[in-house]
């Protein structure tokens, strides 16, 4: 009893210390490092969103960048062409991301859920190619001159502004995910991931909850996209390719599928590792691929220290929902 409360208090203390350090970081850091960390927070949000799909519900989404693109382009087009204020573009982006999540997710999830992987991959390509071909989306050169946003009367301009904006959004996303995980909905995802048939026998409709996970992931991705658009002020189709999706997936898997602190760790790793090995830049994706294979063989539950829970490993049955077949 005292041991667990000591551990809980120690981890609370560590979290508080870490947050304090992150809030004070801009006082000591150069603009370069501020930028790196802003990117890391950004990937934290994306990875937490994808984790709902992959970690909580056990589904594979290989086109996550498409939702990110939908959010970014919605904000980009609405602010530059129609001069809509940034904050009003946010609900539009979320709605559009949710809608496309349903359109893509529903046909794929009604079948074998592994079809979702390839359908999302195809969807990612459709979005990228469409963005590249339409004049509305600025074709290959994309959209530029996206105005800096004003949030509650405060105009966001400097790198420090965006550092704090993304830090706060990352924290909010994290807390939201934690609430979701320990709710009725989060449990339903876990039941389906562990044993789809047993969950169905308890009156839980697996299709409905898989679709919900997919749509929640899509909305988080779309929201991240809106912030991406105003931070970068310019967006182009090549930021939303397959490799972007793989990178986010890697963040989720590296740290710890389904475990929130692990996902945060993973997001930091995929941003900081390439910084640490700039001279091997061309090796990046080769190493990422090798890392994925190695992780699946030796540590499928991710790098974050194993707690009480483990990845469902009980044969193909865990995701397939059958035993002996």
């Amino acid at each position: 009893m005292t041991a667990t409360s000591f551990r809980a208090r120690a981890s609370q203390g560590a979290t508080a210390g870490l947050l304090l350090a992150l809030f004070l970081f801009p006082r000591v850091a150069s603009n370069y490092w501020l930028d790196v960390f802003t990117s890391a927070f950004f990937y934290v949000i994306l990875a937490l969103g994808l984790n709902v799909v992959v970690g909580f519900a056990g589904l594979l989404d290989l086109g996550y960048a498409a939702f990110f693109a939908i959010g970014a382009y919605t904000t980009g087009i609405l602010t530059t062409v129609y001069h809509v204020p940034f904050l009003l573009t946010v609900p539009a982006a979320a709605a559009l991301a949710a809608l496309s999540g349903v359109v893509i997710g529903a046909p794929a999830l009604r079948l074998r859920s592994d079809y979702l992987a390839i359908v999302t991959l195809g969807f990612g390509e459709i979005i990228r190619i469409t963005a590249k071909n339409l004049t509305l989306t600025g074709s290959a050169s994309g959209i530029y001159g996206i105005p800096r946003p004003t949030v509650f009367g405060h105009a966001l301009k400097t790198q420090q502004d965006f550092y704090y904006l993304l830090l706060i959004l990352a924290i909010v996303t994290y807390l939201a995910m934690r609430r979701l995980e320990h709710s009725r909905v989060g449990r339903a995802w876990k039941y389906i991931r562990e044993d789809e048939d047993a969950a169905a026998a308890m009156g839980i409709d697996p299709f409905r909850y898989k679709l919900l996970a997919f749509v929640v992931g899509a909305v988080v991705g779309g929201l991240a996209g809106t912030v991406f658009a105003v931070r970068m002020t310019a967006i182009a189709p090549e930021s939303f390719g397959f490799m972007q999706s793989v990178l986010i997936l890697l963040a989720v898997i590296l740290g710890g599928l389904g475990r929130l602190p692990g996902v945060v760790l993973g997001a930091f790793l995929i941003v900081l590792l390439p910084e640490a090995m700039r001279e091997f830049a061309s090796w990046r994706y080769f190493l990422f691929g090798a890392l994925l294979i190695a992780m699946m063989h030796f540590r499928p539950e991710g790098l974050w220290p194993a707690g009480r829970r483990k990845m469902p490993q009980s044969g193909r049955a865990a995701l397939n929902g059958g035993d002996g077949r």
Binding site: V246, F286, G289, A290, I293, M295
Partner: peptide, 28 residues
């Protein structure tokens, strides 16, 4: 082969890894 008894998700992610290794191996 070592993963035949693992979950489908694990196999799918491995396949992505193999794809990246083959593409970028040839590229390197």
């Amino acid at each position: 082969r070592p993963l035949l008894q693992s979950s489908r998700l694990v196999m799918l992610i491995t396949a992505i890894g193999v794809s990246l290794v083959l593409e970028n191996g040839v590229m390197l």
